[in-house]
Simulated scan of single mutants.
Amino acid sequence: MASIGPNELFFLMQGLKWTIALTLIGFAGGGVFGLLVALARTAEVPSIRRATAGYIAVFQGTPLLMQLFVVYYGVALLGFNIDAWIAVAIAFTLHASAFLGEIWRGGIQAVPRGQTEAARALGLHYRSIMKDVVLPQALRISLPATIGFLVQLIKGTSLAAIVGFVELSRAGQIVSNQTFRPLTVFAIVGLIYFLICWPLSLWGAGVEKRLQTAAR
């Protein structure tokens, strides 16, 4: 059995780099589209609400692994030859937008209706009501759930290996095959995931506790 040296650890760090990059792209892109989904879910037009409810149902009701397959191979069937990196980024953005949209929809609806009615009475338009009154409170209310989803998204990036994307888990598999030390390699990989996700989980729990204290 080969030893795990600096080269193997460097390769794992390269995989970690792509895991973090994919998480940031998926979360940022999902945040932008998720906000639009949340606004559509709370719109006054029933057809818009139903359409976005269907969108959310599709992505929440199907495995992320299947979504990666559909985007990667589906785009190829349409005649577009895209890199695995782009396909995975699109899939994670769509996936995150559905979940974040539903999380933030709950936050928007948790804001007391009286505040919206008071803002309308003052003559504020919909954009100002959302930007200045509703969304700041809604995002604060939904922050613990948002952080929880971020943790899930980080761990979910391991599924990207199925379409040939080399992130942390796939890098660990490659190193394991080269060194024949699967327990040691995946213990290191698991520790890296833990060191990333555990502080975020503590942060989310702390935010939730502060919100509960403030609500009393």
Rank of each mutant, 00 (worst) to 15 (best):
L64F: 10
V58F: 13
A89C: 11
L64D: 10
S128H: 07
W104C: 07
W85M: 13
L122K: 01
Y55I: 05
V75Q: 02
G101L: 02
T93H: 03
N81L: 07
A57Y: 04
G74F: 03
A118G: 08
L77A: 14
S128W: 01
W85Y: 10
I56F: 08
R113T: 11
K131G: 13
A110S: 13
Y73W: 14
Q67S: 08
P112D: 12
A119T: 11
R113D: 02
L65S: 15
L135T: 05
G106P: 09
A121V: 11
Q115V: 05
Y73L: 15
Q115M: 14
H125G: 15
Q109R: 12
N81C: 04
A118E: 05
T93K: 03
A76Y: 10
V134C: 05
A98E: 00
Q67V: 07
G123W: 09
I129H: 06
Q67I: 04
F80H: 13
V70K: 10
G106F: 10
R113K: 15
Y72P: 06
H125A: 15
L122W: 03
M130C: 08
T93Q: 06
L135Y: 09
T62K: 15
G61E: 02
F80R: 00
E117C: 09
V58W: 00
L124N: 10
F80M: 11
H125S: 14
D83W: 12
F92I: 01
A96H: 01
V70M: 05
A87K: 00
V134F: 06
L68C: 11
T93I: 04
V88N: 08
Q109P: 14
F69T: 00
D132R: 12
A91K: 02
Q60H: 14
S97F: 02
I86K: 05
Q115C: 10
A118S: 11
G114L: 11
A84T: 05
G79A: 09
I108K: 02
M66F: 15
D83H: 14
I86F: 15
G107P: 10
L68I: 15
G114Q: 02
G114M: 08
V134Y: 02
L124E: 06
L122A: 06
V111T: 01
P63F: 01
A91G: 13
G79Q: 06
H95P: 15
T93V: 13
F80G: 13
M66K: 11
L94I: 02
P63E: 00
F99G: 01
V88R: 04
A96L: 03
L124K: 09
W85N: 11
A121R: 01
L64T: 12
A96G: 05
I56W: 05
I90L: 14
A89S: 13
A91V: 07
R127I: 07
G114S: 07
Y55E: 06
V70C: 14
V71T: 06
I86M: 10
I129S: 13
L64Y: 01
R105V: 06
G114E: 03
F99S: 01
L94P: 13
G123Q: 05
W104Y: 13
L64R: 02
L65I: 09
A110G: 09
T62G: 12
Q60D: 07
A119N: 07
H95F: 12
M130G: 10
P63Q: 01
M130K: 04
I90Q: 02
A89M: 11
I129Q: 11
M66Q: 04
I90D: 06
M66C: 04
H125L: 12
P112I: 00
F59C: 10
